[in-house]
């Protein structure tokens, strides 16, 4: 008993030493883990700045004293990456705007309005969230063919095929509805007493209050487009309509022979770089949003 009490309150020096020991341990583990996380990025960046001779040196060179920028030019020549990035930005822009608008309206209806079948429809939406996307993809492909967005494809129809099917998201509706529901009912009553229309209340009160969530949705959706591979591959009829992932894979989808790893990594870095910049700029929103998106209820 006496020893325990001393352990807790008495021997400050010992406690302090324990604390420092523990922090050192934790810090070491975190640094080791950080290195593991960083390695692929480091490897990508390192290789992107190597000359071909440096790439094919064994054992590999782990630190460059001189940076070689020519790989980026070579990568651009291998495939029109700027074009792919442009396509991705355009697709991302339209699908995100569409998603945010439809999501806000639907989440508002579910969170705030009172209508017949509200809970039933909401449950229906939620229950489809577990169904793998591949089940939709099959028919959606047929549908965009039916809409005439595949045959004799133009840039416009390619954009339609890549954006329209993704202009809403059940998960985001669910996510935003949660945010909307945290706004106290009294705010709505107060607004009603003052003669505020539902639309004005949505615009002036709910959207501003839920802005962090809406920003999160915007970022997640845009990042999703930057990562999209399967659907664009399926619906684009010409390589130049593809998105960054497709461009990257196609440019270096060698069947045999030697890959120019330095050029490949330069291209990979080109594609990754904008994402990293956006992340570092909007870190606060992204981390908070992603953390919260994983919390049910």
């Amino acid at each position: 008993m006496a020893a325990q009490v001393q352990n807790l309150y008495g021997n400050e020096k010992q406690l302090r030493r324990q604390f420092i020991l523990r922090q050192t341990y934790v810090f070491t583990m975190l640094i080791i883990f950080s290195i593991i996380v960083i390695i692929p990025f480091y490897w990508m960046i390192l290789t992107a700045f190597k000359t071909e001779a440096q790439v094919f040196t064994s054992p590999p060179i782990l630190w460059l004293t001189e940076l070689n920028f020519s790989n980026f030019g070579a990568a651009m020549n291998a495939a029109p990456f700027l074009r792919y990035m442009g396509n991705t930005v355009v697709v991302s822009f339209f699908s995100t705007i569409g998603t945010v608008i439809t999501t806000i309206f639907a989440a508002f209806a579910f969170a705030r309005l009172n209508f017949t079948g509200r809970d039933a429809i909401f449950m229906l939406l939620i229950s489809t969230m577990m169904i793998p996307g591949e089940i939709f993809v099959i028919t959606n492909f047929l549908t965009v063919v039916e809409f005439g967005w595949i045959k004799d494809q133009t840039y416009t129809t390619a954009l339609l095929a890549m954006t329209i099917p993704f202009m809403t998201s059940i998960f985001y509706i669910f996510f935003l509805r949660q945010s909307f529901r945290q706004i106290p009912n009294e705010l709505y009553y107060a607004a009603k007493v003052d003669g505020t229309s539902d639309f004005k209340y949505l615009r002036r009160v709910m959207i501003p209050i839920a802005m962090p969530t809406i920003i999160t949705i915007t970022i997640l959706n845009a990042m999703g487009t930057w990562n999209a591979y399967i659907w664009p591959r399926l619906v684009t009829q010409r390589q130049e309509f593809g998105l960054v992932s497709n461009g990257l894979r196609n440019a270096f989808n060698d069947l045999a022979g030697v890959v120019a790893y330095n050029e490949q990594m330069a291209a990979a870095l080109l594609v990754t770089f904008p994402l990293l910049v956006v992340f570092l700029l909007l870190k606060k929103y992204i981390i908070r949003g992603v953390s919260r998106s994983g919390i049910k209820g």
Binding site: T47, A268, V271
Partner: peptide
């Protein structure tokens, strides 16, 4: 958080 904000193809190649 970095691995979350990468392109799956690009980092797969790496």
């Amino acid at each position: 958080f970095l691995p979350y904000v990468t392109n799956a193809i690009a980092i797969g190649m790496a």
